[in-house]
């Protein structure tokens, strides 16, 4: 009997430690990002680093301005959301409101598989298909503009398209489940009042699923902001203003492409870039918490 009591105690302690590891991990990561990311802020100066727009880490008088990098990340994410979310919501509407079982399984299955495809494959296809297309467009648009620096198609627009596609599975699956959770009484009431099926969807069902859809959008923002490898392969390799046909670097691609060889202060600045990204992600996590809470409160009313 006594031996059993000891086993029970040990088991309890072990599973508790397992559970606490998640907290340790989050604290550890946060601590490391701050410890490693702040020295460069002091060295270069907060203002020069965050608001400077010249990135010349290897020049004899190095400049470490990351404002264009931050802007590119925000712009890329924003545009990807603008393109990806409407398509995703429409697809979710199809899955939840219109599709029969068979077709629904096919489309739903396709969406799931899209989520499982590794990001390097999206990057590879972007390089081989999207970039040549963009180069073609670029040559047409800038034919008479001698000041334009040709990028060979590796530009902001390619990155936005790849990101838009990559966030779709997340947004679609969250939106679909929140649409499905809308009570059928609402649909029936709307239809009985003479609304068409389409009116019912857009005037009744979508507004009722608002907080769930918002959750999907916020998750999509996090995914787009954090994506690294795929856009590193299609966005080009120069720090520029995020204009459609400019080669750009984002927070993530800056780390991926330079961490391998950076040393000294350059390396420390890259850690600061990581810290900035981490800060954005934490803000998004906080928003997610708020959105979910708001959704839960609405639901209980």
């Amino acid at each position: 009997m006594k031996r059993n009591a000891i086993i029970e105690k040990i088991a309890h302690a072990v599973v508790l430690i397992c559970a606490l590891l998640a907290i340790f991990a989050v604290c550890g990561i946060t601590l490391y990002m701050i410890i490693k990311g702040t020295p460069a802020l002091k060295e270069v100066g907060v203002f020069d680093l965050i608001f400077g727009n010249v990135w010349k880490p290897t020049a004899s008088e190095p400049m470490y301005g990351i404002s264009y990098i931050i802007l590119s990340s925000l712009m890329g994410t924003g545009l990807a959301i603008l393109i990806g979310v409407p398509i995703s919501v429409m697809t979710a509407v199809f899955l939840s409101e219109m599709a029969g079982k068979k077709i629904g399984n096919i489309v739903g299955g396709a969406v799931e598989l899209l989520a499982a495809i590794p990001s390097v494959i999206y990057g590879l296809i972007g390089m081989m298909v999207l970039n040549p297309l963009m180069f073609h467009l670029e040559k047409m648009i800038y034919e008479n503009d001698s000041s334009h620096q040709y990028t060979g198609g590796a530009n902001m627009l390619s990155a936005v398209i790849v990101l838009a596609i990559m966030i779709m599975p997340t947004v679609i699956s969250v939106t679909t489940s929140s649409l499905k959770a809308v009570s059928n009484d609402l649909r029936a009431a709307s239809l009985a009042l003479g609304a068409t099926k389409e009116q019912t969807i857009f005037k009744t069902v979508i507004p009722a699923a608002k907080s769930g859809i918002l959750t999907g959008v916020v998750l999509g923002i996090g995914r787009a902001l954090g994506e690294a490898m795929a856009i590193n392969m299609v966005a080009g390799g120069a720090v520029n203003l995020p204009l459609p046909f400019n080669s750009v670097r984002t927070l993530t691609t800056q780390i991926v492409s330079e961490m391998g060889y950076a040393g000294g202060l350059h390396r420390q600045v890259l850690f600061t870039v990581g810290l900035v990204l981490y800060a954005f992600i934490m803000i998004i996590n906080f928003l997610l918490l708020k959105v979910r809470k708001a959704g839960a409160e609405n639901g209980s009313k």
Binding site: G28, I29, R223, G226, E227, I255, G274, L277, I284
Partner: peptide
């Protein structure tokens, strides 16, 4: 689960 993989890589 919301932390991007590049951050895990850095850490």
């Amino acid at each position: 689960s919301g932390i991007p993989s590049i951050i895990f890589g850095l850490f």
